[in-house]
Design a protein around this nucleic acid. Structure first.
Lengths: 316, 316
DNA sequence: GTTTTCGTCGATCATATGATCACGATGCGC
DNA sequence: GCGCATCGTGATCATATGATCGACGAAAAC
């Protein structure tokens, strides 16, 4: 697991200084040394401030082009699956796909989120990365966060910490419990009911898409076992969103596992105005394709080879 | 005058490549050499592409902070003068203030302009700089340009050239003519009437603010003489917007000069939903302050010392 | 066809940048 | 009070970057 413990808060004064440094650097084109002289800082400190600014999303580079992602693929995805929007990021051999998807997703959301809106979040590594990058934007624009499922406290709290103004509502439970009646009991808890009904009112939902593969985060984090996955696969599962497995048409399966989940169901998820999924990689092609075919998602953020693979399967 | 003749159009294929390069550089953090290897380009070419991308506004750096401009000053300006929005850019000793204001103004407009809206533009060096930086955004979003006054053809045509899809409507006349009856005749011309009534329907107006000083662009470009300015000053003029001089309360003066202008009057200007002024520098303090007091503008983009000076005068 | 002019390209080199290291300050537990 | 860990700082150095220059090739002028 990645560390989500970076201290994301800093002094207002420091923030002003950082903004000023960034302005001089990017807009005025001064060198770091020049900025240092002006503001009485060592060159190296200026460098570090810029670094932090970039990491924390204070500095944001936007590529103002229809090709920012691969336009042709985006158009095809939108057309074939009736998506509101598709974002495709260029291919790259090395580097972590999830980080790059998270970058693209956070960028998409930064452009979309308005003041005081509410964002519901699902589960998974990409979602986590996206939230980390969004942390600053969220608090600036007074965005509320709400979880779609249990089991997210660990990483959301990391993101939210240090900012008091932010409204964060988590389902205080694990993603999956061991027995159906326990899940029922948890879902009936007053606090859980409250958060879940709040999640239904969110403006956007940000979700990952899981493949039915041994590397799945669900298995890595102990919420499911390989043998369970094998059973799911036999029953036709090709992927999952917020823990719900669906077949190749994006129709949810009738699995006992689903009864043990603590979180919203597909019906409630679809009722959220815009469901945004960020996922990519060869293992996830079928999972993403099925989700798109079934209309489970409104916005898809993925990478170039994955988009290519998805489209090829549906044009054959 | 600056050259506005840079070739702003380029091949679609090249644009895709440029976007890809920019993506790798800014989002993936690859070095220019690595990008060159991947895409079979020499390192130096990658460097030049990035350079071009920045110059042409394809790459856009946003500083995601309330301090991106100096927040405290912005808040005060908004409060004192009832502005919709104020942008204050940090102080800098050296460097051309107008360029930095133009940068800030173009950035503001990029964030605000929606597809197919119409932008009316006034007169002045800052306006020109802003338009140059905006050129790409304008054509991408299919923004129409319309002039608020005569005398702008020289620089607007430079900005608009090379893009056919763009709608540009100019008042085909000088800013000022030598006699009142000539001005009347021009204003009655069918084409002039058409453009002026189109300007009234614009969503935004972008204007400069001129000081009543010998360095004024109006004088430099020969539209007015120093002796005229001296007379204006005696009559209480502190500044002008699109050639119309006003007193320290922002109330337009009754000058013969105004009768010889070809362009909209203040009443028509105020009818445009959002009038955006970009101006700064010690000479312009009074001019800006009066414009703000008189409610002539809705959005002010200025620099830190100027903002400070303006506010001090009104708090004393 | 020749010459001129312009623009593009890559090599070279000075500079800007960020990675690493070692130091000192600060905070924490014993 | 005394280590101990942690963090921020600046010094040093390897690397990334972009400015300059000459060469090449294409288009235009003659």
């Amino acid at each position: 697991m990645n560390e989500a413990n970076d201290e994301l808060a800093f002094e207002p004064h420091e923030e002003e200084l950082l903004s000023r440094v960034a302005w001089h650097y990017y807009h005025d084109g001064l060198t770091q040394s020049e900025i240092g002289e002006r503001l009485n800082l060592s060159r190296i400190k200026v460098s570090r401030m810029l670094d932090r600014g970039r990491k924390m999303g204070l500095i944001h580079v936007h590529i103002n082009s229809s090709y920012g992602g691969c336009f042709a693929l985006e158009a095809k995805l939108q057309e074939i699956y009736g998506l509101d929007e598709a974002r495709v990021i260029p291919a790259q051999e090395s580097g972590n796909i999830n980080d790059r998807l998270a970058e693209a997703a956070s960028q998409y959301l930064m452009g979309r989120l308005k003041d005081q809106e509410m964002l519901a979040v699902g589960w998974g590594a990409t979602v986590m990365g996206t939230l980390q990058r969004l942390a600053r934007t969220l608090s600036y624009r007074d965005i509320s966060l709400v979880s779609l499922t249990g089991g997210v406290s660990a990483y959301i709290e990391g993101v939210a910490s240090g900012r008091s103004s932010q409204n964060v509502h988590l389902i205080p439970a694990p993603l999956v419990v061991s027995q159906e009646n326990i899940a029922e009991a948890i879902r009936a808890e007053r606090h859980v009911v409250e958060v879940m009904s709040m999640a239904r009112t969110a403006n956007y939902a940000l979700v990952g898409i899981g493949a039915v593969a041994d590397e799945a985060t669900l298995i890595a984090s102990g919420y499911a076992s390989r043998s369970q996955f094998e059973i799911f696969r036999r029953q036709g599962a090709v992927g999952d969103i917020i823990g719900i497995f669906y077949d190749q048409n994006g129709v949810p399966l009738d699995l006992p596992f689903h009864k043990m989940l603590v979180g919203l169901d597909f019906e409630a998820l679809s009722a959220i105005p815009q469901v945004i999924a960020a996922a990519g990689g060869p293992k996830k092609v079928d999972a993403i394709r099925a989700a798109a075919r079934g209309g489970r998602i409104d916005v898809l953020i993925t990478d170039e080879p994955t988009a290519q693979a998805i489209i090829e399967k549906d044009q054959a």
